[in-house]
Amino acid sequence: MKDVSFLQLAFAYLFMVIVLVLSYRTKVGREKEIVIACFRMTVQLIAVGYLLTIVFANPNPVWTILIIGLMGFFAVDNIKKRIRGNISEQFKRIIALSMWISSLVCLLYFVLIVIGISPWYNPQYFIPVAGMIFGNSMNGIALGATRLIKGFEEQAPRIETALMLGATPKKAAMPILRDAFDNALMPTINSMLGMGIVSLPGMMTGQILAGNSPLIATRYQIGIMLAIAGSVALASALLVEFGYKTFFNKKDQLQEMTGCRK
């Protein structure tokens, strides 16, 4: 791949100058955020670049597992921050479990069985693939969880009407559960639809820039896309299937925190 020097890279910051000028001239007032975001992006990526160089040069299962663990931890933390309003401890646990189970199952299946990497902890494969799977599952869960909470808040009277007619909690909440699952999965399905036509995905672009054959890059991309879809679907299903229960108590009554009346 053609090398890019820091000097050359400096010219790319011209784009940020344009953004800043636009923000200032149109009185959007986001200059501070733009500078911070740009600075953090630069520092974080350079740091990761050095970190990965070291990790790739010294493959070690402990490092691989540690990095995967950190990625998962930050993904779960990010979801909790993205969801506004009060969420119960129980629901937080369901979020973490959905994230970990779905991502690990799909990650391990993809790198160990589909690609068949060797040694099994090879960080060069494990870490980028984990990043993509964790990132997408994180988005899916955040969308699904937000929808679930909103549904229970807004539709408490309708859920109670269903309970009054003898519905089980699951039956009473079913429309909300379907809606949450749908919301979690839609972005992944939409991105699959547009893939290759509207966008050349990051992983594939990277491989092509690095000089790999587009045909191999495509195969990787298809595989990773399927793994992502699988992980998002599994995560959403777990979230919905176990998450709704946290809105009810053991006596099949709607918990009061979801905003139902006296």
Partner: peptide
């Protein structure tokens, strides 16, 4: 209570 609510049904104020 799910079973109970099949026998004792409440009609809410607003349907």
């Amino acid at each position: 209570l799910v079973l109970h609510r099949k026998k004792v049904i409440m009609m809410p104020q607003i349907s």
